[in-house]
Amino acid sequence: MSASILTVDDSASLRQAIKIALTGEGYAVSEAPDGQAGVSAADAGDFQLIITDLNMPVMDGLTMIRTLRGKPKHAGVPIIFLTTESDADIKAQAKAAGATGWLTKPFNPDQLITVVKKVLAK
């Protein structure tokens, strides 16, 4: 069975690009438009990986990660930040919140797939 991945981003076109890249590799991809919807989807589903944006309405990515990491169900689920931000302070905050990795937008689909395979192999 392929891994189930949740992608959380307020940009529908970016969620679609991620979905196309990952479903082409055989992954099952679900989507959420913001952090709050991402938490709800993660709570309702069984995901092996979560990919999230940082800057979103309703709930940002850092808050979403902190919320998920506070729940035993999500404690070990890898979370990758996919964002336009590259500031070292924000990266440090993301790591402290529990992010597993970081990719900068715009992303290269091959690079995304490489990171996903690496994270899921652990």
Rank of each mutant, 00 (worst) to 15 (best):
S86H: 12
I51Q: 00
A88D: 15
D10A: 13
Q36G: 12
S2P: 15
A17Q: 14
L103N: 05
A121K: 01
M56F: 12
K19T: 15
G38N: 01
F81Y: 09
P72W: 02
K71N: 00
K91L: 14
P33K: 06
N108E: 15
A97C: 08
N55Q: 12
I65N: 08
K71S: 01
P106R: 03
A12F: 13
M56S: 11
S4V: 01
Y27M: 05
A88Y: 08
A21F: 05
T7K: 06
I113P: 06
S30K: 04
Q93G: 07
T7R: 03
R66D: 12
I18R: 07
A97T: 04
M64K: 07
A12K: 11
Q36K: 14
A88C: 06
I5S: 00
S13Y: 07
P78Y: 04
I50K: 02
G98M: 04
F81K: 07
I90N: 04
I80M: 14
A94C: 05
W102K: 09
T100E: 02
A42Q: 05
A42I: 05
Q93T: 05
T23K: 01
I65G: 10
G38I: 00
I65L: 12
E25Q: 15
P78G: 04
A28N: 12
P57D: 12
S4R: 06
D9V: 02
R66T: 13
P78T: 03
P57W: 10
K122Y: 06
K71Y: 01
V77H: 03
L62Q: 09
T104S: 13
I90W: 03
V8E: 03
L54E: 03
G45E: 01
I5Q: 00
P33S: 11
G61T: 11
V29A: 02
T52E: 06
D60M: 11
A41W: 01
K122C: 08
I80N: 06
G101T: 11
D9E: 01
Y27A: 07
A32I: 11
T63I: 08
D60H: 12
T104Y: 08
W102I: 13
G45M: 00
A94Q: 02
A41N: 01
R69E: 06
L103M: 15
R69H: 05
R15H: 01
E25F: 10
S86F: 11
S86V: 12
T7L: 04
I20H: 09
S86K: 10
E85K: 08
D43C: 11
L49V: 08
L14N: 09
T100H: 02
A42F: 04
D10Y: 11
K117A: 14
V29W: 00
G76F: 04
T114R: 13
V119A: 01
D89S: 14
I80W: 06
I90Q: 03
D110E: 14
L22T: 03
F47K: 00
V115F: 09
P33L: 07
A99S: 13
I18T: 07
A94N: 01
R69L: 08
S11D: 14
Q111E: 15
K122T: 12
I18Y: 08
I90L: 03
I65Q: 10
G24K: 11
K19F: 08
N55L: 13
I80V: 09
I113K: 07
R15L: 02
G98H: 04
T7V: 15
V115H: 11
M59I: 10
D10R: 07
D46C: 06
